[in-house]
Write a protein that binds this DNA or RNA. Sequence first.
DNA 1: TGCTGGATTATC
DNA 2: ATAATCCAGCAA
Length: 188
Amino acid sequence: MVKVLKRAFFERPTLEVAPELLGKEIILKQSKKKYKLGIIVEVEAYTHDDPACHAARGKTPRNEVMFGRGGFSYVYFIYGMYYCLNFVTEKADIPGAVLIRALEVCDEDDIRVASGPGKLCNYLKVTKEHNKIDCCNKDSSLIVVDNNYYKDKQFSIIQTNRIGISKAADYPWRWYIKESKAVSKILS
DNA sequence: TGCTGGATTATC
DNA sequence: ATAATCCAGCAA
């Protein structure tokens, strides 16, 4: 039984949603019978009053989806070669999103094939075509479900600083699962 | 219209 | 430490 995360899960304060996404499972449908799965083990939060947020200086064609309802995907292209996957949070007109930074995969030889925001999109084959998908609709090609490997296990969450940004670098808005070997980078 | 730098990653 | 490689956002 697949339990797709509901709109109400995403339409809450970004800082509450972000850590709760840890341990949830992303399912991406690549074709009729082909799926890619991954458990979220690392996230970062970006809010409306956050200088590092793409939506900080108003609505643009790129960040438009962040101003809509929660539960939609926000995918953007960066550094000329990578895509990043986010889930929109908060109710309509309040921009906010959670960047998915790492997934743990079970059916691959390399447990770190999706350990980084660019690598995970490469693994799932996420592109700009996956922007603005309603992930609360069970028929969508991209959904987040509550069934997962960590669900019935004891796991601890580490909260620390975000990675790779210059603005508001001191905000402790990155969370990851301590026990996972697929976390992108452990700061010491 | 032109320029700058980025929510990255692999490699030197 | 730096190259790879595009394009959004802003200045003019």
